[in-house]
Computed example of a mutant assay.
Amino acid sequence: MKLILTQEIPGLGSPGDTVQVAAGYGRNYLIPRRYAIVATRGAEKQIEQIRRARSAREIRDLGQAKEIAGQLATLPIRLVTRAGKEGRLFGSVTATDVVAAVSAAGGPDLDRRRVELPSPIKSLGSHTVSVHLHPEVVATVKLEVVSA
Rank of each mutant, 00 (worst) to 15 (best):
R51A: 14
S14P: 04
T6P: 07
L133C: 06
G107E: 00
A101Q: 09
V137M: 12
E136M: 11
L62S: 08
Y25L: 11
D17K: 02
S14G: 07
A100S: 07
S103Q: 13
H127M: 09
R113D: 15
I50P: 02
E86K: 07
E8M: 04
V146R: 13
A101P: 06
R27T: 05
G16T: 11
V145R: 01
L124V: 09
R41F: 08
R112W: 05
P76H: 00
T81D: 03
L117I: 04
I50F: 04
K142Q: 11
L12R: 11
T18Y: 08
T96D: 12
T40I: 10
V38F: 01
P120M: 09
S119N: 07
D109T: 14
V98T: 10
S103E: 12
L72Y: 00
D17C: 02
R52C: 05
E44L: 12
V102N: 00
V93H: 00
A83S: 08
A139T: 00
V99D: 07
I77P: 00
R34V: 09
L110V: 09
Y35R: 12
S130C: 08
I9W: 08
V138P: 01
A73S: 05
A39L: 12
E58T: 04
T74E: 14
S126E: 11
L133W: 01
P120W: 08
L110I: 14
S119H: 14
A139F: 02
A69C: 04
Q71E: 15
R88C: 02
T128C: 01
V146L: 14
L12P: 11
V80N: 13
A95F: 12
A95G: 07
H132I: 14
P135C: 04
G106T: 10
G24N: 03
L117D: 03
D17H: 07
